[in-house]
């Protein structure tokens, strides 16, 4: 919890610092695609984990029903 608050505060300060010219920098620099890519990778990995969990539960169900 302590770390969570610390991280949130840090993120908030960082966010305030870059907020001024975000609009102009946001896409012109091109670097936003890196962020989008990283978010996509994280989401795909979470989904892969969910799919594996789904399969494992299905296996258990099949074993229990037979």
């Amino acid at each position: 919890m302590k770390y969570f608050i610390l991280i949130t505060l840090l993120l908030t300060k960082f966010n305030n610092a870059i907020a001024q010219d975000e609009t102009s920098v946001f896409r012109t620099s091109g670097k936003i695609y890196v962020v989008v890519g990283i978010i996509a990778i994280i989401f795909i990995l979470i989904v892969a984990y969910l799919i594996r969990l789904d399969k494992k539960i299905s296996q258990l169900e099949n074993k229990n029903n037979s």
């Binding site: 896409r27 936003i32 962020v35 989008v36 978010i39 996509a40 989401f43 795909i44």
Partner: peptide, 9 residues
């Protein structure tokens, strides 16, 4: 995935 990508772009 569509929302994560296009929401930012």
């Amino acid at each position: 995935l569509y929302v994560l990508v296009y929401g930012l772009l």
